[in-house]
């Protein structure tokens, strides 16, 4: 509480403008930041606007800023003019956030795996190339949803994606069968 009071209200806005400027100079979009850091769009925009009112709390907010700044390659010392020295609490929060994001999600924690049955169902209708790319995409999104909304939501999201994907994939398979039927008909007309 006391560390939060040390903030000059104008500083978060100044910090946000600074981070936004660096991001734009590097040619990155907000989406790039979200995709790479796993911070949600709401968090990134709140930091850039200097409006922390909708975010979880002081020490976590500072950790989000730290993650964003690290990703942009900004040295910790450069943040000091805007950012009053990190307290011990902040470092703890930072460790919690980074551990959750980096180790549990980004390094492929075996406990955060998409549902096997749904994955297998989709597997049946995919070409060999798609099995790598599409299932990889779905697993990436599954982890994103898991970190933001929990495993239950992630599971629901995954099943929804699988079932809504089946219609176009089955349609494509039927189309391929039609080609085979056409070739058989051609063969019949030529030889009989």
């Amino acid at each position: 509480m006391s560390s939060q009071n040390k903030y000059n209200p104008s500083q978060p806005k100044e910090l946000g403008r600074f981070l936004k400027k660096v991001r734009e100079e590097q040619g990155h979009t907000v989406r790039d930041v979200c995709d790479s850091t796993r911070l949600s769009r709401r968090i990134v925009l709140s930091i850039e606007e200097g409006d922390f009112s909708n975010l979880p709390g002081g020490m976590f907010n500072r950790s989000f800023v730290q993650i964003y700044a690290n990703w942009l390659g900004i040295d910790k010392s450069k943040l000091n003019p805007f950012y009053i020295e990190l307290s011990q609490d902040t470092e703890i929060a930072e460790i919690v956030v980074v551990q959750t994001i980096d180790h549990s999600i980004s390094t492929g924690n075996p406990h955060i795996k998409p549902p096997k049955l749904a994955e297998y169902l989709l597997y049946l209708f995919l070409s060999r190339r798609e099995r790598i790319n599409l299932l990889g995409d779905l697993e990436e999104e599954y982890r994103d949803v898991a970190i933001k909304f929990g495993k239950r939501h992630a599971k629901l999201f995954y099943y929804k994606q699988v079932f809504t994907s089946l219609a176009p994939l089955i349609g494509r398979s039927i189309q391929k069968l039609r080609y085979i039927a056409w070739l058989l008909e051609l063969w019949r007309r030529i030889y009989f």
């Binding site: 980004s106 492929g108 795996k113 190339r129 790598i132 790319n133 990889g136 995409d137 697993e139 982890r143």
Partner: peptide
């Protein structure tokens, strides 16, 4: 590239 968060599967 293939990344751990994608279960070691590559992007296209």
């Amino acid at each position: 590239e293939a990344t751990a968060e994608r279960g070691g599967r590559a992007k296209r």
